[in-house]
Design a protein around this nucleic acid. Structure first.
Lengths: 132, 132
DNA sequence: CGCGAGTCGTCTCCAGAGGAGACCATACCT
DNA sequence: AGGTATGGTCTCCTCTGGAGACGACTCGCG
C-alpha cells in the first residue's frame, strides 16, 4: 500500500464534492468511471442475472482478468451480488445487481443511450478535426 | 497505428450496441468512460467557460499532461470548443462546452450527483466486505 | 474409455497509459 | 533582477490492462 494521497474519512458536515481530489466521493467516482463497469451495469440491468461466462460473452472483448477484477470491485462497493451454488460441479456462480446497483445502473443508462444515439455525430466531429 | 481490432464504419442499418466490441459506439463510450472526462464535463457545465489553468485548479489532482490530453480528446469529439486570443501574451486560451457537449454533460450529471449522495453507503459496503 | 469442450477462475508476461516533475517563451509586478 | 503566472510539451518511471497459459472438475460423444 502506497502512502498516496488518501481521501479523508466521511465528514457529515462537509458537503461531498467530486471535483475535490480528497473528497471520498472522488474515490467512488473512480470506480464508476470505467468502460467495463458501465458495460457491466448495462448488461446486468438488461438481463437481471447472469453467470460468469455469460457475462464474458455479453461484454464483448473483456478478458477474464478484467471480468473478475471488475466484478469484485462492484461486489465490494455493494453494487453486485455474487451467489455460488456449491452443489453444482463445476460450480454455478450467479451475478446480479443489488438494490444500490440498480439505482446507479438506472443513472448510467442515459449515458449509454446518448452514446449510441450520438455516435455518428461524434464520428463526424472527429473526421472534421482530423481533416484540419 | 496498430492493426488492432478496429470498429467498423457506421452502418445506418445495423443498430448501435455498446456491448458489441466492434460497434462504433463502443469507441465513443471509451472516450466518455473516464474519470477526468466526467469531471471536466461537470466543471465546464457549472462554470460555462474556463481557461486552461482554471480548469487545472478546478479538477483537483489532474496533471498538465492529462489536462491537455483530455481536452484534446473532447475537442476532437466535438464536445469542447477551444478559443485562443492571440493578441494576449501570454495567450488567453478558453475552453467551453459545445451544444453536443452540453447534451452529454447533462446526461452525466445524474452519475455525479448519485455518487456524491451515495458515497457513504458505498463506503459502508466496502467496510463490510473487507471485514469478511 | 479417452477426448474435447465448458465452467470459473488465477498467474505470468509484456506493452501501453497515467502521474511527477523538468523545461520553455513570454510578460507582468515589485 | 527575481518571483509569479500562463499554456503547453517532454522525459522518465510506475502501474494497469490485455493476451494467453494453466488448473481442477464434469459432462457428452464416439
Amino acid at each position: 500500500m502506497a502512502a498516496e494521497e488518501q481521501s479523508a474519512s466521511i465528514d457529515p458536515n462537509r458537503p461531498m464534492n467530486i471535483l475535490d481530489a480528497l473528497c471520498p466521493s472522488r474515490d467512488v467516482l473512480v470506480d464508476l468511471a470505467d468502460k467495463w463497469v458501465l458495460l457491466m451495469l448495462a448488461s446486468l440491468r438488461e438481463s437481471g442475472v447472469q453467470r460468469y461466462s455469460e457475462l464474458q460473452r455479453s461484454l464483448g472483448g473483456i478478458s477474464r482478468k478484467m471480468l473478475s477484477q471488475t466484478l469484485r470491485t462492484l461486489e465490494r462497493d455493494g453494487l453486485v451480488l455474487r451467489t455460488v451454488d456449491v452443489k453444482m460441479a463445476p460450480p454455478l456462480v450467479l451475478y446480479e445487481l443489488t438494490e444500490l446497483g440498480r439505482e446507479i445502473a438506472e443513472e448510467t443508462r442515459a449515458l449509454c443511450t446518448w452514446t449510441e444515439k450520438r455516435t455518428a455525430t461524434v464520428y463526424e466531429a472527429r473526421a472534421a478535426y482530423d481533416r484540419r
